[in-house]
Write a protein that binds this DNA or RNA. Structure first.
Lengths: 151, 151
DNA sequence: CCGAAATACATGTATGTACACTTAAATTAA
DNA sequence: TTAATTTAAGTGTACATACATGTATTTCGG
């Protein structure tokens, strides 16, 4: 769907302004699809993100700060997302021996299993919705990074 | 910044997968900049969005449903966002004469003034951060719409 | 070695999001 | 015309976000 239809408007002044809204809308669209898929497994978007980040270092432990710096939405409140994963017994949490300020996290066996099946479901879903060519995707990545130039 | 640096990873399997994360990250980046600019005026991102939507039809009134269908994040809880705008006296809210199920909203004089100065600040800010060429922006819009093909 | 500064995390508050459920009004069907 | 259905909003709950503040621990300067 064109953005004009999605937002029922035709008042974009410049392609730059439209691009800003288009990015926000596309992110919302993608997040909605991902979330509805994860909901079946009792996970939220950000809980899944944390599990994946932990998987990346497994079997090493990770502290809150390390996890936070790898999150897509970098102001996410990691401790509270962890709270919910611990409550579901997907993640274990202990105080670091090395630095007692740090809390360190690790996936539990249940966590690894949940993540495996969630990832499997997610990948099949994404395959059906993300259908642009690798060449187009590469170009899109280049343009998004150029869009964030002033970062 | 490249996405790999922003998320401290190098594990993107395909350009398609990277594009998904890149869109989510870029949206977060943009929303953060916009929000910090609006905060100075005591507005949130979504409150500003609602004010702009109302402006688009002003001096006509709009009902909750109409506003909702024009929001970027289409599951936003419009009544509660309106609550806050009414509390700040930026928007007036009455029951429709035509259909008593509907609540109709309109900008107040204060609302119009707030929006005007918020928009002014926002446009100058956006001009400094959204620096890609109109040609690149057009290509980006084309690719984002292609990305959402399966919508 | 000690006190100040920095760091890592937790917590509180306001706002927003997603979604189920309720209520009131309008529309439709019999 | 009345009963059933649909529609528009509001409300409740769980989760997430943005940000300020508090607390314990570590580090650093003197």
């Amino acid at each position: 769907m064109k953005l004009e239809e999605a937002l029922k408007t035709d008042k974009f002044l410049t392609q730059n302004q439209k691009a800003g809204l288009n990015i926000l809308y596309t992110a919302w669209w993608l997040k909605t699809i991902i979330s509805s898929e994860l909901k079946i497994m009792g996970l939220t978007h950000e809980q899944y993100n944390v599990l994946r980040i932990l998987k990346g270092k497994h079997p090493q432990q990770m502290c809150v700060k390390d996890i936070g710096s790898r999150m897509i939405e970098q102001n996410s409140n990691v401790p509270r997302i962890i709270d919910r994963l611990v409550a579901k017994n997907l993640v274990s949490r202990t105080t670091s021996d090395v630095d007692k300020r740090e809390t360190v996290m690790n996936l539990t066996t249940t966590g690894i299993e949940s993540l495996r099946s969630a990832t499997h479901k997610m990948n099949s879903k994404l395959k059906t919705i993300m259908v642009i060519s690798e060449k187009d995707a590469e170009e899109l990545n280049k343009l998004l990074e150029r869009f964030r130039e002033k970062e």
